[in-house]
Amino acid sequence: MKKALLSGIAAFAALQLAAEIAVPATGWQISKDAVNPAAVNDVFTATSSGSDTILKITDFKQFPAGANDLLVFSMRFPEGKKTMFQMFWASKEQPNYSEGNSIRQAITGTGALETYCVNLSGHKGWTGTITNLRIDPVSIPKNAPEAFAIGEFKIIDAAAGMPVPARNWVSATNCKFTGSGDNIVTGEFIGKDPFIGAALPAKIDASTLKAIEFELKLPQGSAPVGQLFWMPEGQKAYSEPCSARFKIPADGEFHKVTIDLSKKAEWKGSIVALRFDMTDKPAQSGQFQLRNFIVK
């Protein structure tokens, strides 16, 4: 009995350990239409050599789809070039790759590694035990080879923390974006009360994620106080009660900020949108930068 119990505990532990997949740069192998592979500084690089580049994982460990619902990956592609990234998966229930068991992400290259965050939980095929997966990172005309790179690649439980990549900050009011390369949002002030808005990768479960963390750089002359607004599902506009203020030096350097929302009664239910007011009063010149934004 004791032996059987220990065996069961070991099996359960193994399942939990396999519950999150993270593929290192050395974990990719070319299956089709790519040449010159290399893995340097945790980044896999290669050059497409056909119309449908395919990479497979050399040491795949199956894991439960239900415990992992967020794909986070970074990819570098030449500036201005467009391609379509696609991930396929197989499961015990559906052992063959198919279009139905895949997700797509449009890529417009910036020449730098850009992070993408894709919600998998709403996909009807993302169920059961995932037994294998592959990525098709480049899909371009056959006679147009392009260098590409894959950096971070992991599939995680959104309840453990959800990043909001630079490219997900899509709207700007009284400021303008001047870049999002290297996973940094960069912008300039053009009016009073500047703020930016995020397209969230997935709804935020406020019952499990109770803090927000980011790094912000404000130019000298900005007010050292900012404000974060959130919008619960069903609410039509941002409101003062659904917000939190933060302090940060305005000295042209990055500073880490953590906002604890665990005691905020209005932080509840599903959060569907975020608005980030980086400063109450912008400097007359200089740029702001935002990076490493995560809800945790």
Results as ranks from 00 to 15, higher is better:
Gly80Asp: 05
Trp89Met: 03
Ser98Cys: 02
Phe85Gln: 00
Ala112Leu: 01
Asn68Gln: 14
Ala90Asn: 04
Asn119Leu: 06
Gln94Lys: 14
Phe85Lys: 00
Arg104Leu: 10
Glu93Cys: 02
Leu113Ala: 00
Tyr116Asp: 03
Asp69Lys: 11
Ser102Glu: 10
Pro95Val: 07
Leu70Asp: 11
Asn96Met: 10
Phe77Glu: 06
Ala67Glu: 13
Phe85Val: 07
Ile107Val: 15
Ser74Leu: 06
Phe77Ser: 03
Met87Gly: 04
Asn119Val: 00
Gly125Asn: 12
Gln86Leu: 10
Thr115Met: 11
Phe88Ile: 05
Tyr97Ser: 10
Ser102Tyr: 13
Gly66Asn: 08
Gln105Pro: 00
Lys92Glu: 15
Leu120Trp: 03
Gly66Thr: 07
Tyr116Met: 08
Ser74Cys: 04
Lys92Pro: 06
Ser102Arg: 02
Gly109Arg: 03
Phe73Ser: 02
Ser98Trp: 00
Asn96Glu: 11
Gln86Ser: 09
Phe77Thr: 01
Arg104Gly: 10
Pro95Gln: 06
Ile107Phe: 07
Gly80Leu: 08
Glu114Gln: 15
Gly109Phe: 02
Gln86Asn: 10
Phe85Leu: 08
Gly80His: 05
Ser121Cys: 08
Ala67Met: 15
Tyr116Gly: 03
Asn119Gln: 13
Ala106Gln: 14
Gly111Ser: 08
Leu70Val: 11
Leu113Lys: 04
Gly109Glu: 09
Glu93Trp: 13
Glu99Tyr: 14
Phe73Ala: 01
Ile107Arg: 00
Asn68Asp: 09
Phe73Lys: 00
Met84Lys: 15
His123Glu: 06
Lys92Met: 12
Ser98Val: 00
Leu113Tyr: 04
Gly122Glu: 09
Ser102Met: 12
Met75His: 08
Ser121Ala: 15
Ser102Gly: 10
Met75Phe: 12
Val72Phe: 06
Thr108Ala: 09
Tyr97Glu: 10
Ser74His: 05
Pro78Arg: 11
Gln94Tyr: 02
Ser74Gly: 08
Glu99Cys: 02
Glu79Arg: 11
Thr83Asn: 04
Thr83Lys: 01
Leu71Glu: 01
Thr115Asp: 08
Ser102Phe: 05
Thr108Leu: 04
Leu71Asp: 04
Leu113Pro: 09
Ala112Gln: 12
Leu113Ile: 07
Cys117Gly: 05
